[in-house]
Simulated scan of single mutants.
Amino acid sequence: MGFLTRLRTGWALTKDSLRVLRGDPELAVFPLVGGVAGLCYVALLFGGATLVGGLDSQALQIALLFLLYLGTTFVASFATAALMHETRTAFEGGEPSFRSGMAAAWRNKGTLLVWSVVSATVGVVIQLIDSQDNLLAEILAGIVSVAWSILTYFVVPVITFEDVSVREAIHRSGETFKGTWGETAGAHFGVGIVTFLFMLPVVLVAGAVLFLGVGSGSGFGFGASVAVAAVLLVGAYLFSTTLSSIAKTGLYVYATEGRRPGAFEDVDLGHVPD
């Protein structure tokens, strides 16, 4: 199957993912909870670091960076696992529920934690390489970062739906990406376009609201405009994150099981490689 055909498949996958989101908008609750939990974790981490002080040494800075990557990766992976589990429920005609999704993620908490440790370690190593005042080091960091992102693209759904170790999850993720690289690229492109089209008016409206708030000369007006703009931008974030996870779940299902999820009626999966 040619690359352009794969891109068309990815675009169709994106459109059907949007249909799933319209049918079950409650799926966006998972990234909302994950985002709030992540912000709380970051606030507590840096708040504690500020109170403790003494973060001038490189070792402590690295430790803080590792804890930042570890916590945010775990929270994001946990929320994504819950979302993907309920997305699959929606694929099969069931009714997604917040409780069921969180319970499914909780069952895999140990593996998700180990994955977060591995991901945080790699993230810190990449950051240390990139921090060198050397063009070659920056290029190397970029290559490693892209390679790692590709290799681990399907790690969370593998952990969510398969009883495997983190090492096996990474291997399975790489194999799955290899079999669907065109569709994955197409889905990313499709989600990116849809998100851009959605974000553009949101950003324009948010900017206009902020402009009006500043021009009002009122503290209340400015505060209200900031709040409205924040709500609009958070809504756009939830939309893009949820849409991407739905598309990734659909890719995972047909790549690993050789069947088309019922929700993806516009996607021609007859030529998807194993």
Rank of each mutant, 00 (worst) to 15 (best):
T241Q: 12
A229Y: 00
T242C: 04
V202K: 07
S240V: 10
Y237G: 04
A236G: 13
V209N: 06
F220I: 13
V203G: 08
S225L: 00
I193C: 02
F211E: 13
T241S: 12
G190Y: 02
G213H: 02
A229P: 15
A206F: 02
H188T: 10
V191Q: 04
L232R: 10
G223P: 08
I193L: 12
V234I: 13
F189H: 05
F220R: 04
L212P: 02
S240G: 05
G235P: 06
F196T: 09
L197T: 05
G213K: 04
F198S: 11
G217W: 01
L200I: 09
F220E: 11
G190V: 01
F198M: 11
L197G: 09
G221K: 01
A229G: 10
V234F: 07
L232K: 11
S218A: 06
P201R: 03
S225G: 05
G186K: 03
A224T: 14
G223I: 06
L238C: 03
V205T: 13
F222V: 13
G207D: 14
V209Q: 09
V194Y: 07
V214L: 13
A227M: 12
G192C: 02
T195R: 11
S225Y: 00
L238T: 01
V202C: 08
L232A: 08
G217D: 03
A187F: 11
V203C: 09
S216V: 11
V231W: 11
V203T: 14
Y237V: 13
F222Y: 15
T242E: 04
L243F: 05
V226Q: 07
S216T: 15
G219L: 06
L204Q: 08
A230Q: 11
F239K: 01
V209L: 10
V228H: 07
V214E: 09
S240E: 12
G190R: 03
F239V: 09
F211D: 13
Y237S: 09
G213Y: 02
V228N: 07
G219Y: 05
G223C: 02
G219S: 09
S216Y: 01
S218I: 05
F189M: 09
L238I: 11
G207N: 15
A206W: 00
A208E: 14
L204T: 12
I193P: 14
L232S: 06
G217M: 01
G192I: 00
